[in-house]
Amino acid sequence: MDNDKVKSRREFLQSGVRLSLALALGGIGGLAVSRLTGDDYVWQIDPFKCTQCGRCATECVMSPSAVKCIHAYDLCGYCDLCGGYFKPGYNALSTAGENQLCPTAAIERKFIEEPYFEYVINEELCIGCAKCVKGCTSFGNGSLHLQIVHSLCVNCNECSIARVCPSEAISRVKASQAYRIKGGFTQESAG
């Protein structure tokens, strides 16, 4: 009777160790699989919530900011008088620096055909100040908008821009859907 009792305790300990090992291995395996197949999260701007306050240029830990202006060409009117390119009180509709709204001349104005012009963002020069976005949103179709560029973003645990964003436009999104480009991303889909 006693032998049986000792045996069953040993068996109990053995099976307990085996079970623990199996659980640990299963857990590690599951974690590895989830790391391989699961989605990470990254920070991104909802262009419909953004109020173009300019904080993306000053608050990002990266210098210049990882936030850049993106152009949704299918929404653009290709206007001659572009509210995102020309500053108020411009002298002429020309590419002279005195007429440009962008503080770093990061927007290239290209003639397409009379009277249409294409506006291309030079990402290296863009500091994410949103001046052009404000101009385009206030006076035009709103085709210019800000996005966090993930090849530049270091994905801080707490985004320093999100902390001060007055419209709470920055949130974590799935890495598989890391961008919210206007056109494909609509106000309706934003919810």
Binding site: Q52, C53, G54, R55, A57, T58, P88, L101, P103, I127, C129, A130, K131, K134, G135, S138, R163, V164, C165, P166
Partner: peptide, 19 residues
């Protein structure tokens, strides 16, 4: 200092209120 209404004015802000 990090409350949005306590932050100093932003040099990059484009204010269209005058229009």
């Amino acid at each position: 200092s990090t409350r949005p209404d306590q932050i100093a004015s932003n040099p990059f802000e484009y204010n269209v209120d005058q229009y």
